Amino acid sequence: MPHPLRLHLTAPEEAVGPHVPGHVAHPERHHAHGTFLLPGQTVPTEGGGAILAHGTDRAGIERIAAEDPFVAHGVAEYVITSLAPGRVRPALAPLLTEDG
Rank of each mutant, 00 (worst) to 15 (best):
L38K: 00
G40T: 11
T42L: 11
T42R: 13
P44M: 00
P44S: 02
T45C: 02
E46Y: 01
G48K: 03
G49L: 10
A50E: 04
A50H: 02
A50N: 05
I51C: 09
L52N: 04
A53G: 11
A53L: 13
A53W: 10
H54F: 00
H54N: 15
H54I: 03
G55T: 12
G55M: 13
G55Y: 10
T56A: 06
D57A: 08
R58P: 04
R58V: 06
A59P: 03
A59N: 07
A59D: 14
G60H: 01
G60N: 00
G60Q: 04
I61V: 15
E62F: 12
E62V: 05
R63L: 11
R63T: 13
R63G: 00
A65N: 05
A66K: 00
A66T: 03
E67C: 09
E67G: 07
E67T: 08
D68K: 10
P69Y: 01
F70G: 00
F70N: 09
F70P: 01
V71R: 06
V71T: 11
A72Y: 07
H73C: 10
G74E: 12
G74S: 11
G74I: 15
V75I: 02
V75K: 06
V75G: 04
A76D: 06
A76F: 04
E77Q: 13
E77K: 15
E77I: 01
E77W: 08
Y78R: 14
V79M: 04
V79P: 01
V79K: 15
I80V: 15
I80E: 15
I80W: 09
I80D: 12
T81L: 08
S82C: 14
S82Q: 15
S82K: 10
L83H: 14
L83Q: 10
L83I: 09
A84V: 14
P85Y: 08
P85K: 11
P85N: 11
P85Q: 07
G86Q: 07
R87D: 00
R87T: 07
V88R: 07
V88W: 04
P90H: 15
A91K: 03
